[in-house]
């Protein structure tokens, strides 16, 4: 495949991707910021309950999920860089690798949730687990949408009917979204699994 060089945007002081997608990302992160505030307020009110519940989480799942998403995110960053160079076939390959390395997150989450439910821990067990299931559930929804976005981007990368700058814009926008999924998980991991109550 001929490498079509994407427009030189070095001199353009713009956000990578699409400005509208960045608005969505910022709005979404604001929503998660409210989640974190609500959780912090709850933990401050009942530190013992939160600490006992936190110890019931399996740190290995949290750590594995973090490593999975960070690995996948690293491939996504590579895909965006390759797209900037106009190597669309390699970009597509890297997007496939991004998805393949990210998919075990879904499996890990399913195993973790089923293990909790098998032990009788559900959404209504206590306030900590309410937040645990809702926050990780909403995050999982973001992850699932991210996988769908990656599938669309795989087609976009090699869609020669689309101009190079359009393809690059959408791959960067998808990359920004995928990194948001990483970032939100890192904060969730720290907040739910690691942070000890004072």
């Amino acid at each position: 495949m001929t490498a079509t060089t994407a427009p030189d945007r070095a001199s353009m002081a713009t956000l990578p991707g699409d400005s509208g997608v960045w608005f969505f990302i910022v709005a979404d992160m604001c929503a998660f910021a409210v989640f974190f505030l609500v959780f912090s307020a709850g933990r401050a009110a009942e530190p013992a309950l939160y600490e006992t519940s936190r110890r019931m989480l399996d740190l290995r799942f949290g750590l594995a999920n973090t490593l999975i998403l960070l690995t996948s995110g690293a491939f996504m960053a590579q895909a965006a860089r390759t797209a900037q160079r106009g190597d669309w076939q390699r970009t597509r390959t890297l997007l496939i690798v991004t998805m393949i390395t990210g998919l075990p997150f879904g499996l890990s989450k399913a195993l973790e949730w089923s293990a909790k439910m098998a032990h009788g821990v559900t959404l209504t067990t206590n306030e900590f687990f309410t937040y645990y299931f809702i926050f990780t559930g909403v995050h999982f929804l973001h992850f699932a949408i991210g996988i769908a976005v990656l599938i669309v981007l795989m087609r976009t990368a090699t869609d020669t009917a689309k101009p190079a700058d359009t393809r690059l814009r959408w791959i960067e926008a998808g990359g920004a979204y995928w990194h948001m999924v990483d970032l939100l998980w890192i904060v969730l991991f720290a907040m739910l699994y690691l942070l000890r109550a004072a």
Binding site: S19, V21, F23, F24, T130, L141
Partner: peptide
């Protein structure tokens, strides 16, 4: 674009209503 994405975000945020029947207090 920001307003178009804002609308999509609002529609997405509505998903939180799914957990509303499980709570009698709190956020």
């Amino acid at each position: 674009k920001w307003l178009a994405w804002y609308g999509i975000w609002v529609g997405f945020m509505f998903v939180l209503e799914c957990v509303m029947p499980y709570f009698r207090n709190g956020a």
